[in-house]
Design a protein around this nucleic acid. Sequence first.
DNA 1: GGCATATTCAAGAAATTTCTCGAATACGGC
DNA 2: GCCGTATTCGAGAAATTTCTTGAATATGCC
Lengths: 228, 228
Amino acid sequence: MPETPAKSRRKRRFKDAVYSAVARVPGALANRHRLELLDLVSQRPRTVQDLAAEAGLTVANASQHLQVLSRCGLVTVERRGTFAHYRATGSAVYRLLVELRAVAEAVDASIADAEKSYFGPRDPGIVTFAAAREALAAERTALLDARPHEEYEAAHLPGAFSAPLEALRAGKIALPRSKHYVVYCRGPYCVFADEAVVLLREQGLHATRLALGPAEWVAAGGEVELVS
Amino acid sequence: MPETPAKSRRKRRFKDAVYSAVARVPGALANRHRLELLDLVSQRPRTVQDLAAEAGLTVANASQHLQVLSRCGLVTVERRGTFAHYRATGSAVYRLLVELRAVAEAVDASIADAEKSYFGPRDPGIVTFAAAREALAAERTALLDARPHEEYEAAHLPGAFSAPLEALRAGKIALPRSKHYVVYCRGPYCVFADEAVVLLREQGLHATRLALGPAEWVAAGGEVELVS
DNA sequence: GGCATATTCAAGAAATTTCTCGAATACGGC
DNA sequence: GCCGTATTCGAGAAATTTCTTGAATATGCC
């Protein structure tokens, strides 16, 4: 390949342009607060002050971080009155986050350690959608969503029933004893399903945790259901 | 959920720890030079000075960038004598890069524009491995690797024959006219396969470009073949 | 219109990242 | 042992990112 200087310069300009543009996306992800905000908006659309309170940021600071995410298309904003509702963009972003977390955990054992010491020893439960499908194929098995009802309404796995941990705790939901239950929540880093399973088992019901949530489902190419 | 202040502090510490740790990975990717180095080492193991020259960096600077990538487990280094051979780590990283590029292109049309204006209008060819498998299932169809032979030796798609563009240009490779050819190179952003296809067609052969490379293959869960 | 509220903007200080340059280290060949 | 080379290290300047603060904008409600 007798590469002329002119051709080589052109190639460098092209590479600089493309790599600079691509690098903006990890640039937006390269901050713990923005990663947390991204996780929060992936649960359901949220306002700036809501997100700021949840993530322990000032409103102005949260707004700035959300704008960074927005500029890279990682979140979208919908304005209603004086409120700005930020939400996650879609499956491509979920896939990116799933891969990102996989790489991070593979590299840095301290992440898994922190999770273990925070959550305590916990039953991994069902960890693939294939296994979940198999479990649900059995007669008399139902899928329960242990997240707060608003999150269920925003998006849930196909065929799931809403059974918020709060409502289960308050005894507001009566489940048939004759069935088996597969319970999921936000994802591998959420404890709602764990606690719901404990609760159901205390009541003598047969329950298993599914350690995946809607984000993983969408990342895997699945469609979520809206409302009920 | 009556969240006590103590529990809430604990939760915040946990989240800070995990998100900080996860953010180190996009932090390592958030730089155009490191993205380029990552692409370069994913072609084949390379030394620091080789990478520095290719990416237009000083040796010291390239070394620093490679160390950043190395600390995050995105590349590994093998020392032979005074040389340090850096190479890509594995499939998880390839998947991350594929998703990263997908998100970046979805967000920023200027990336696709830059590619279009640099490469000129080009035949997309075959863009999925499923389609490639189908094409190759036909009788008398062979898979060709248009990359330099060292890259073929480092890793190639299963069943591929080495047919470096250079060698084809020099007329050093004689291909049976009776066959059909599917030609791939480094991936969607590489022109070797394009040019090889043009060359083969000029010779009256039937050739199609496969716009994916070993990195995409590994990302999709495939195994590459080593040596020949 | 006037007021309360949600969000964004703008400027500056502090922290982090990046690049350069010269020196240090380490290995192989003589 | 000495020299040449590949790589890494370290310090400092320059650029970028981050956070805070106070003000500005915009909307809804009275």
